[in-house]
Design a protein around this nucleic acid. Structure first.
Lengths: 207, 207
DNA sequence: CTGTCAATCGCGCATTTGGGTAGTTTCTCA
DNA sequence: TGAGAAACTACCCAAATGCGCGATTGACAG
């Protein structure tokens, strides 16, 4: 089971160095390298590898835009970002855009191959500080001021239910639901269902 | 800079083993241990440590509920979960609830201390497969079928704007906005603004 | 024991919304 | 060149919504 790796990296030296390292390691093959997303992405589509190493700082189309494009065209293809800086915010953006992990340029060959192996095995190699950043973005920011009942109602608002349906589901009258929603509006400082849903999800009061 | 660690774990043996290991290691101190959230959380509030090891499977209040409670009372306190299973879904839930990472019971002492160190240094120790699960939850599922204009409108729906306001902002008539929203509904298979916003954010068509 | 707050219920009314129908224009892509 | 889309405009009308004014009950804290 050889892992076929492709590389998109504008620096010729780094590109060749990576290719030689990867192609020379048992279990890995690197036969496709490009210097830009513009040339590389069509190449990927033509003959999809198992994994792509994508430089994050590319001229013209950036690596992040590249990830977005690749996920449109080849949703199954794993993309591993290459970054100069350990904790670049761009790395975080890349993960949001669809990258599975990232490598730091200048990483010792052994660790680099470890990371590629981890990624191709379904992992997500990343540095501790990025990991924390990623995990933190899960955490709810502020304490939600909503009561249990209000959260139930809010959940149903997200699904587009109306007074009647919510009332039936909660075994109360539509007027009660109306009252709850009014209270939700006040607590969240909003005036419509759509805004309440938007704010609730952004503030992670839900899900 | 000694890292003060507290432990909440119902199994007496594991609890003592962990305490001895941690307390006996240079740079770490463990003077607080409890067998449940009910007793432990008040104790944490009284004298907050730097980090808590929290068993995920506790009788009565689970570790996950415990994390939620702790984040309400002590938002700055890092919680590291203890799990029996490598890839328990509960681990993922814990991270969502606010844990910074987790440890697997039976991890070699060296790696266990490494993980605690990583967590207290601002990292998020977790296994590769959980990392991928976490990262994947960032990725947008499907390609969004909305046009550019529709996305603009959808954004404003999230803010609770009405036809009139959106129309003014986009320099078009309210009827046009209405038409756009109608198309959005059809593409997203929804029938109300709230549902559209909920679906759009869940499917990561926005933000 | 008093006050606050969640949860429950009610009604009227102006406004907004959603659904239907019916077009024009512009632009891309086959 | 012709089909399809995106973007734009307009009207009607029933239904849903938001907001105003109430109200009672029970639990829980000070």
């Amino acid at each position: 089971m050889t892992v076929r790796v492709a590389i998109i990296e504008d620096d010729r030296d780094i590109r060749q160095l990576l290719q030689i390292l990867i192609d020379g390691s048992p279990g890995f093959a690197c036969r496709q390298t490009w210097e830009s997303c513009e040339t590389g992405i069509p190449g990927l589509v033509e003959d999809p590898p198992d994994l792509v190493l994508m430089d994050i700082d590319l001229p013209k189309m950036s690596g992040i835009e590249g990830v977005v494009k690749i996920r449109e065209l080849l949703p199954q293809l794993a993309v591993l970002m290459l970054s100069v800086h350990e904790d670049d915010d761009a790395v975080f953006q890349s993960l949001c855009a669809g990258a599975v992990g990232y490598l730091v340029k200048g990483l010792p060959p052994v660790q680099l191959l470890d990371a590629i192996r981890e990624a191709s095995a379904g992992g997500s190699p990343m540095s501790p500080s990025i990991a924390r950043k990623v995990v933190r973005s899960f955490h709810s920011g502020e304490q939600n001021p909503l009561s249990q009942r209000e959260i139930e109602v809010l959940r149903m608002l997200c699904d587009g239910e109306n007074y009647r349906t919510i009332a039936d589901a909660l075994f109360v009258s539509a007027n009660t639901v109306k009252a709850h929603i009014k209270n939700i509006y006040e607590k969240l400082q909003v005036h419509t269902r759509a805004e309440a849903v938007g704010k609730a999800i952004k503030d992670r009061l839900l899900r």
